[in-house]
Simulated assay, not measured.
Amino acid sequence: MRFVILLVILALLVIGLFFGHSGDQQAAFLLTVISTSATLGGIAFALYGWYSSKEIPDLVEKRVQEHMNEMEKRMEKRLLAQQEAMQKVIAAYGMTGDPDRKIALLRQALEVDPSVYNGYVALGYVYWHEKGDLIAAEECFRKDLDYHPDNYQAACDLAALYAEQKEWTAALSWMKEAVRIRPESAKDFDNDPRFDALRANLREDYERVLGR
């Protein structure tokens, strides 16, 4: 809009130069052209201001509404993905028999939503208790903590996994982390048979980690 106004003024000046008369008449004509151009320019700027006051708020509102609609669609898509992933995790918990089918279903859930709650924990249990793959189980528990740093259950499972392998230092370290995440979980270790051997071998360290 401003560019058009400037072009109009420039055109009027050029016309004045080409069609003006010589001497005083030319000077007078140029002054008239300049005065007229300034007046037209003022009118044009006034029109532009009116246009801006009417159109710009509508344009801003339109852009804001488009942005909100886009955000709503993304949130709806995200919610549907979370629901689908959770349904697959729940279905895997209820399955019996073939562990490979459970793994496949849980992998599908994690592809839909890698952050689905306890998805990696459930997968870790299958690898640990049904496949005997301790390395894969450890990777799953650690992966869960990447998505959910405050999931004390994953930390407890890592502690139990190391305790089973009699890697006491690592087990105690993850016990400490679990208690840090959830202090009230300290009493849960006393009733967890996975830590019987650790208590028997390192009772003092066990009590110290639990803050006793």
Rank of each mutant, 00 (worst) to 15 (best):
R2M: 12
R2F: 03
F3S: 13
I5S: 10
L6S: 03
V8C: 11
V8H: 04
I9G: 08
L10D: 02
L12E: 01
L12Q: 02
L13I: 14
V14I: 13
G16N: 01
H21A: 08
G23F: 02
A27Q: 06
A28Y: 06
F29Y: 05
L30A: 12
L30I: 08
L31N: 11
L31H: 05
V33N: 03
V33Q: 02
T39D: 00
G41F: 00
G41H: 00
G42E: 06
G42H: 06
I43K: 00
I43C: 10
I43L: 11
A44G: 13
F45N: 02
Y51E: 06
K54S: 13
I56Y: 03
L59P: 02
L59H: 08
K62I: 09
K62T: 15
R63A: 15
M68C: 06
E70L: 13
E70Q: 14
M75I: 13
K77S: 15
L80C: 01
L80N: 12
A81F: 00
Q82S: 15
Q83I: 10
Q83V: 13
Q83M: 10
E84H: 05
M86W: 06
M86Y: 11
K88N: 09
I90D: 07
I90F: 11
A92S: 10
A92N: 03
G94D: 11
M95I: 00
T96H: 12
D100M: 07
I103R: 04
I103D: 02
I103A: 03
L106T: 04
Q108C: 05
A109T: 02
A109I: 03
L110A: 07
E111K: 12
D113W: 00
D113H: 03
P114C: 08
P114W: 13
S115P: 04
V116C: 09
V116G: 06
Y117N: 04
V121G: 00
G124Y: 07
Y125M: 10
Y125N: 09
Y125K: 05
V126F: 02
Y127M: 02
E130Q: 15
K131W: 12
G132Q: 07
G132N: 08
L134I: 11
L134K: 10
I135T: 15
E138T: 06
R142K: 15
D144T: 05
L145G: 15
L145Q: 07
D146E: 14
Y152L: 07
Q153F: 14
Q153S: 05
A155I: 12
A155M: 10
D157C: 07
D157E: 14
L158K: 08
L158Q: 09
A160Q: 07
E164Y: 06
Q165G: 02
A170G: 01
A170T: 09
A171T: 05
S173H: 08
M175H: 07
E177W: 00
R180S: 05
I181R: 08
P183G: 15
E184T: 15
E184Q: 13
S185L: 11
S185T: 15
F189I: 06
F189E: 03
D192I: 00
D192K: 00
D196Y: 05
A200E: 14
L202V: 06
E204P: 15
D205M: 00
D205Q: 12
E207F: 12
R208C: 04
R212F: 08
